[in-house]
């Protein structure tokens, strides 16, 4: 038994250094990873462990240029995410990873980039914004199309607006249900895609959100003429091990913890509409 083999299952302790309340049920926490930097590709995830409660897969939401600061945005939806959201600076979490595939930030160079995200689906693409901003000159127009249920559910809103201003991203926001703080568009994120004036033959599209949202986003992208091999999505499944051994994340022949979560549409298209696979 080698130490390297053991490391696949065993977390590394990392202290929480900061916590930001993003929405009513969602926080962003930063872990101090200086002792074991987490070099990751945008789109990859870690297994986060809350002492005594267990592990869950959470996408990395930080800047890939800073592997010593491990950032996750977490929504409180269950047995493990509830205690994770409740942590305070100074407390220690366990971390394994990074795991899985990443977004095609290099393949997307020399063309337009269209990011379409819904709800908490914005968290796994946030590192893409950092990566694009770091080499802004390598990309043509960058479209960031974001949907949320209500204005109060919009993640990273100020940061996105700041990023868009500083790096020339075409940022468009929409909500399903407006309130009196909202004077933007109301409706599904697909409408933003319909209205975005990009060249489909030069665009790489990355989408993350509920499967129903991604289904309509992909359909619209294909309708506009984006090739299947330039469309990427991130699939969510139950994961217990993240190393292809527990079987939970299987989708057809894929273990999504290894050949996902990010995958190209032409790899997903033949089974995406098979219910309950």
């Amino acid at each position: 038994m080698t130490a390297a083999a053991l490391d696949l299952w065993r977390p590394v302790p990392m202290p929480v250094v900061s916590k930001v309340q993003e929405t009513a049920d969602t926080v962003t926490i930063e872990l101090d990873a200086r002792d074991s930097p987490v070099r990751f590709a945008p789109g990859q995830f870690t297994m986060l462990y809350a002492f005594g409660h267990g592990e869950v897969p959470i996408s990395i939401s930080g800047d890939p240029a800073h592997p010593e600061r491990l950032v996750h945005t977490i929504r409180a939806v269950g047995r493990v995410t509830n205690p994770l959201v409740a942590v305070e600076p100074g407390q220690v979490l366990g971390v394994r990873g990074p795991f899985g595939t990443g977004w095609p930030v290099h393949d997307a160079e020399d063309g337009e980039v269209v990011v379409v995200a819904g709800g908490i689906g914005l968290a796994p693409v946030r590192p893409v914004f950092h990566a694009l901003a770091a080499h802004r000159e390598r990309y043509e127009r960058v479209w960031v199309l974001v949907g949320a249920r209500t204005p109060a559910d919009l993640l990273y809103r100020e940061e996105l607006e700041r990023f868009a201003g500083a790096h020339g991203f075409d940022l468009r926001l929409t909500v399903d249900h407006a309130d009196d703080t909202w004077d933007g568009p109301v409706g599904v994120v697909t409408r933003l895609l319909e209205a975005a004036d990009f060249d489909p033959s030069r665009a790489t599209l990355m989408t993350c959100g509920p499967e129903i949202m991604m289904r309509f986003v992909v359909r619209e992208a294909l309708r506009q003429g984006v090739p299947a091999e330039k469309i990427w999505l991130s699939m969510e499944r139950n994961m217990k091990c993240a190393i292809g051994l527990c079987g939970h994340c299987q989708w057809g022949a894929d273990f999504l913890c290894r050949t996902g979560p990010v995958m190209r549409w032409d790899h997903a298209m033949h089974r995406f509409d098979v219910g309950g696979l």
């Binding site: 065993r10 977390p11 302790p13 462990y49 002492f51 979490l93």
Partner: peptide, 15 residues
């Protein structure tokens, strides 16, 4: 058992 986690008085975690 894959591992046990232990927390010391200072809050440090050990696996």
């Amino acid at each position: 058992e894959l591992w046990r986690a232990r927390k010391d008085e200072g809050g440090e975690l050990f696996f």
